[in-house]
Amino acid sequence: MPTDETFPFTPADPLDPPERYAALLRDEPVARVALPTGDLVWLVSRHEDVRRVLADQRFSRQAITAPGAPRLLPLAEGSKSIFVMDPPEHSRLRRLVSGAFSPARIRALGTEVRALADDLVAAMRRSGPPADLVAGLAQPLPITVICRLLGVPYEDVDRFRAWTDVMLSYDRERREEVVAARGALSRYLTRLIDAKRAAPTDDVLMDLINAADDGDRLDDEELLAFGYTLLGAGYHATTSGLVHAVLTLLRRPADLERLRKEPELLPVAVEELLRRSQAGGGLGALRIALEEVELHGVRIAAGDAVLPLINAANQDSEVFPDPAELLLDRTPNPHLSFGHGIHHCLGAQLGRMELELGIGALLRELPGLRLAVPEGELEWSSGLAFSRPRTVPLAW
């Protein structure tokens, strides 16, 4: 079935869902569009259907790594990342790595993350105004935490930040750059893993190296793939999510002031900011139908690509009353920003913590927080899985 419509859609406002989502939710819950690669994909937009696609094993993640398979992000063919595996391989990997991301371990990081967020915002206060939200907090907070988790020397941050920036581009013109960046990061992580085996350390990467269950272990390719996943999701997703959350609040001074006066509301408010966020778009959720499936009277054939639109599902009025509104105390809030089913994000608890503590530090330390430039002057990145402005100058 030919189509002239291409995805991703370009929103009129980068902080709001594309207008097309409302029409899809209302009139066309299963719609055919083209990807930048020219591949066709079925967009699934309603909350109930997105949950179904995310959880139904007839929609395969692993199949997108096959040679010639439709894909939106530049995944390696045959990737052994847990991000793109189906059971039973996914179940095996999840079992092996879950201990490294246990709730107790993440909670134990809380004091360190809070101190880091406070120190970063204090440095912004000393150097500004204006101070850049991205360089001052949104990048260094998650990337420092990931360095701590993986045991990566912080002096190497700029190198792997540059590699992962390129690797998460879906611009077809950058394919060679993507391959080169992946190779450079692979060589770096290989050396790091070898060094840890020679001199064991106390960090998540060492835990993954040692992880075993009845003699089963992660092989080197699986360790490398996990390193890619942590760097990409743990850094880029949180950086963009924090930027989107702060920009959303800056547009709403009354909400900003309410959170300053009621910091105990932050955990619930973070869930609503995640629901409302357009930082990621769920571009990595692409799947391939393994057999014929019917959704809303639409026949999805075996081999067809299917993309559950998480950001559209988070706007479904059947689940979220007044979905366009930011309701800081919205409960319940069954948003799908961290996915659903077996691929629910392992780092969800950490991501929530970083958003809560980062926003909390800004509110405490920078009274009168506001943009230092007109919002229209912000320069947004394009062609990346996680969108954000290059810089966000703040005043207070």
Results as ranks from 00 to 15, higher is better:
residue 5 E to N: 08
residue 8 P to R: 00
residue 14 P to I: 02
residue 15 L to F: 05
residue 16 D to N: 11
residue 21 Y to D: 06
residue 26 R to T: 07
residue 29 P to V: 07
residue 35 L to P: 05
residue 36 P to T: 01
residue 37 T to I: 04
residue 37 T to R: 04
residue 39 D to V: 00
residue 39 D to W: 00
residue 40 L to C: 12
residue 41 V to A: 10
residue 47 H to L: 07
residue 53 V to E: 09
residue 60 S to F: 03
residue 66 A to D: 11
residue 67 P to V: 05
residue 69 A to D: 06
residue 72 L to P: 09
residue 75 L to F: 15
residue 77 E to N: 07
residue 88 P to W: 03
residue 91 S to F: 08
residue 93 L to R: 00
residue 99 G to N: 07
residue 101 F to I: 10
residue 105 R to S: 13
residue 107 R to D: 15
residue 111 T to S: 15
residue 112 E to G: 15
residue 118 D to R: 00
residue 126 R to F: 04
residue 126 R to Q: 14
residue 129 P to Q: 01
residue 133 L to D: 14
residue 134 V to E: 12
residue 137 L to M: 10
residue 139 Q to R: 12
residue 144 T to E: 08
residue 144 T to D: 11
residue 146 I to A: 11
residue 147 C to S: 13
residue 147 C to H: 06
residue 148 R to I: 04
residue 150 L to G: 10
residue 155 E to R: 13
residue 156 D to F: 07
residue 160 F to P: 13
residue 164 T to Q: 03
residue 167 M to L: 14
residue 167 M to H: 03
residue 169 S to C: 03
residue 170 Y to W: 05
residue 171 D to H: 05
residue 173 E to H: 12
residue 177 E to S: 15
residue 177 E to C: 11
residue 180 A to W: 02
residue 181 A to D: 04
residue 181 A to F: 03
residue 183 G to V: 07
residue 185 L to C: 11
residue 198 A to L: 12
residue 199 A to P: 00
residue 214 D to C: 06
residue 215 G to W: 04
residue 215 G to H: 01
residue 227 G to E: 08
residue 230 L to N: 07
residue 230 L to P: 06
residue 230 L to K: 02
residue 232 G to K: 00
residue 235 Y to A: 12
residue 237 A to M: 13
residue 238 T to C: 08
residue 238 T to V: 05
residue 247 L to P: 14
residue 254 A to G: 10
residue 256 L to G: 07
residue 263 P to S: 12
residue 263 P to D: 14
residue 264 E to L: 06
residue 264 E to W: 01
residue 265 L to R: 05
residue 267 P to S: 12
residue 273 L to T: 04
residue 273 L to M: 09
residue 275 R to T: 11
residue 280 G to F: 06
residue 280 G to W: 03
residue 287 R to I: 02
residue 293 V to C: 07
residue 296 H to I: 01
residue 299 R to K: 15
residue 303 G to V: 02
residue 304 D to C: 00
residue 306 V to S: 12
residue 313 A to E: 00
residue 319 V to H: 09
residue 321 P to L: 04
residue 321 P to G: 09
residue 322 D to N: 10
residue 327 L to E: 13
residue 327 L to A: 14
residue 328 L to M: 03
residue 331 T to H: 09
residue 334 P to Y: 08
residue 334 P to D: 04
residue 337 S to R: 02
residue 341 G to R: 01
residue 342 I to A: 14
residue 343 H to Y: 13
residue 346 L to H: 10
residue 348 A to R: 01
residue 349 Q to G: 14
residue 352 R to F: 09
residue 354 E to A: 06
residue 355 L to E: 08
residue 361 A to M: 10
residue 361 A to R: 02
residue 362 L to H: 08
residue 363 L to S: 10
residue 366 L to A: 11
residue 368 G to I: 00
residue 369 L to M: 13
residue 371 L to F: 14
residue 375 E to K: 11
residue 376 G to K: 03
residue 379 E to T: 13
residue 384 L to W: 09
residue 386 F to L: 14
residue 387 S to W: 03
residue 387 S to R: 15
residue 394 L to D: 15
